[in-house]
């Protein structure tokens, strides 16, 4: 397995990462999988054994249950795992439980850390662009979380090219930490990330991490 520094950061990550959408397979994610804790533990062990050090989750996956399963699978391996999670999609009807706002990000990270059973995560993504909140608010709160030691780095996911550049520029022009990675959808069937996102990430020092490389199961063909 090859390792590289993730974007313009000191975080060393494996080329392959283990995703956790199928962990648990409950709370609306029954179509994705039906996975028990023992299998999840095996997956973490096997991935680590194969040199994979990156484990990705989100509060969206099984509405928090995937984080609980990943958290139990950490056992005594926390130091060897680079763990990322995400927030932004609504999980409740509370109008403040959504988006890239200070109130949602601050409450989401605490819930995520509790479910994972860890004091910090390595990388925290905004799961989708929020055009209803000032970018400055998002950048500020992510930098605050870094200062509090709750996250080490932050990133974005599913942004448009201009939104990525706006976010990055606003951060660096104000001497704040910009996103170090973006998680984006890219498969041979769907290559639109080449238009803007992939070259923008490279030019900005934002690592390009690909979610669902098999097209959400579309390319899992015999």
């Amino acid at each position: 397995m090859d390792y590289n520094l993730f974007g313009n950061s000191g975080l060393n990550i494996s080329k392959y990462a283990l995703g956790t959408i199928p962990f648990s397979g409950t709370k609306g994610f029954e179509k994705v999988s039906d996975m028990d804790q023992e299998t999840a533990n095996y997956m973490v062990d096997y991935a680590l054994d194969q040199g994979i050090n990156q484990f990705d989750t989100a509060n969206l996956y099984a509405k928090g249950d995937a984080e609980i399963v990943l958290g139990k699978a950490i056992r005594n391996k926390r130091h060897d795992m680079v763990i990322s999670s995400k927030t932004g999609f609504p999980l409740t009807d509370n109008p403040n439980d959504v988006g890239a706002t200070r109130i949602n990000i601050e409450s989401s990270i605490d819930a995520t850390l509790e479910r994972l059973g860890t004091d910090y995560i390595d990388l925290y993504y905004v799961h989708c662009w929020d055009g209803q909140v000032p970018v400055n608010e998002t950048v500020q709160v992510m930098n605050d979380l870094i200062k509090k030691g709750k996250i080490r780095y932050w990133g974005v996911s599913n942004y448009s090219g201009w939104a990525l550049a706006k976010t990055h520029t606003l951060a660096v022009e104000n001497n704040m930490m910009p996103p170090i990675a973006q998680q984006i959808y890219y498969t041979p069937e769907s290559r639109e990330a080449e238009y803007e996102l992939l070259p923008a990430g490279k030019e900005l020092g934002i690592a390009n991490s690909i979610w669902s490389p098999l097209g959400e199961g579309l390319l899992r063909v015999k």
């Binding site: 392959y16 997956m43 990705d56 990675a181 490279k202 991490s209």
Partner: peptide, 20 residues
Amino acid sequence: VLAWLRDRPNVDSVVLAARN
């Protein structure tokens, strides 16, 4: 698919998932 994707330009990481 994974072999093609991981060597595409500017791809830094590929997040795999599996149901079994």
